[in-house]
Amino acid sequence: RLRAWNRDDSAVLRGWVALFDAWSLVHPSPEGIEATAVAEAVEAVPQVLSLLQLSAGPVPVPALLDLLGQRVAELHEERCEVPYGPREQPAPATTETSADLNALLLDWALEGLAAVGALTLGAGNATLTPLGNWAVWVKLEQICVAAQSPAGNIEQPAADMLLGCARLTPGPARAEYRAWLAARPVGSAVTELLAVARGEDALLRGLAFEALRVVGAPAEPVVRSVVTEAPLRPYALLWLAEYEGADPDDAQDVLSREEATWLWVDTAAAVADHGETGLLVRHLDSAVQGTVPALLDEVRAVGHPRTVQVLVALAAAHPDPALAKAVRRAAFQVHTGGA
């Protein structure tokens, strides 16, 4: 990430967000306070930040202390447990003691957030910096996006989410991808999508890269790193070409003839497994070779592991008996290793 800072402004922002998220580690918590109380304060801080963001200016510390106290009280109520049988109850903390503890924890939180540059402290008030305001806005936007998942795929693993989006039109599918991505850290989401792309299902491979298009810049280093993996190379090259500004209709020009043929077979495998027979026949028109004999020659040579299954399915689906026979012959030659 440090090496990328000189050429990628988004890498700088991602690096700072990691620091912002780790404010409670950057600034050690006060000594002598139970870890539970510290954890509750950390969990309550997003509400404090939201108030600062909505106020768009200095907020008096007493108002922030009142909000922190309310949120901590809500957390206590949410986590209460019904005791079974009689047991000795500890004496409840006094209001004054709770207020003193909350004030101490609020001071720690504000100092920690100031230490990472998210806010500035004045005489009895706190103000979000422009950077802090941006970070809170992004976090709120992620929550809102994650809530907009009409197909309900947010909690699904990547493979199930992609299958759930397979029959959606591009717009709703992208909305699902955004919601799914907003609900998890971008690094783990990208890793999970690429793990699916490395699997045997060609449909999921293509959909995984569609989801990675929604990720954008944070996915670029990882996508670039998989260019050396033969099954992913055509998808990664197309992704990078579009990311760097190429028109989607012209992005195919970055592929060699062999890479384009591999992609044609992989896409045909996805259609054969999940689509209709008519789609497989129409898929012939997308081949770069221009003629079926030329396509069959190059398909035989490309070495895709699904070549035989694709050719058998195409022969069964095509209405032209002569062409179907030629395709079956090609499938047999691949299967037996013939020329």
Rank of each mutant, 00 (worst) to 15 (best):
A183T: 06
N133Y: 04
V214R: 08
P185A: 10
R329I: 11
L2C: 02
P130Q: 07
L13G: 06
D320F: 08
L280F: 01
P62G: 13
A166M: 10
S55E: 10
A330N: 06
A123M: 05
L68M: 15
W262D: 10
V334M: 11
L64C: 11
L75D: 08
D285S: 14
T129V: 01
E258D: 14
P248N: 03
A268N: 03
V116D: 05
E141G: 14
R282S: 14
H318S: 10
L168V: 00
W134V: 12
P234D: 02
R306W: 02
R3Q: 12
V288M: 09
N102Q: 12
Y243F: 13
D285V: 07
L104Q: 11
S29V: 01
P28R: 09
A294Y: 03
D250G: 02
S24C: 08
L255Y: 02
G338N: 13
V42N: 08
L240I: 07
L212S: 12
R328G: 08
D253T: 13
F332G: 09
G152W: 04
P321N: 13
V310P: 03
P170Y: 11
E96H: 04
R7V: 14
L323H: 06
D100G: 05
Q148S: 13
E88V: 11
L68A: 12
L279W: 09
P62C: 12
A211K: 08
E200H: 08
C80V: 13
P28E: 10
T97C: 02
A197G: 04
L279K: 04
R300C: 05
P157D: 15
E298T: 06
F209H: 09
L212W: 08
R328I: 05
W262K: 08
L121S: 02
D249M: 05
F332S: 12
V72I: 15
P157K: 14
L295M: 10
A158G: 13
L105G: 03
T228N: 14
A322E: 14
T228M: 13
E111M: 11
P248S: 01
A39F: 07
T120V: 12
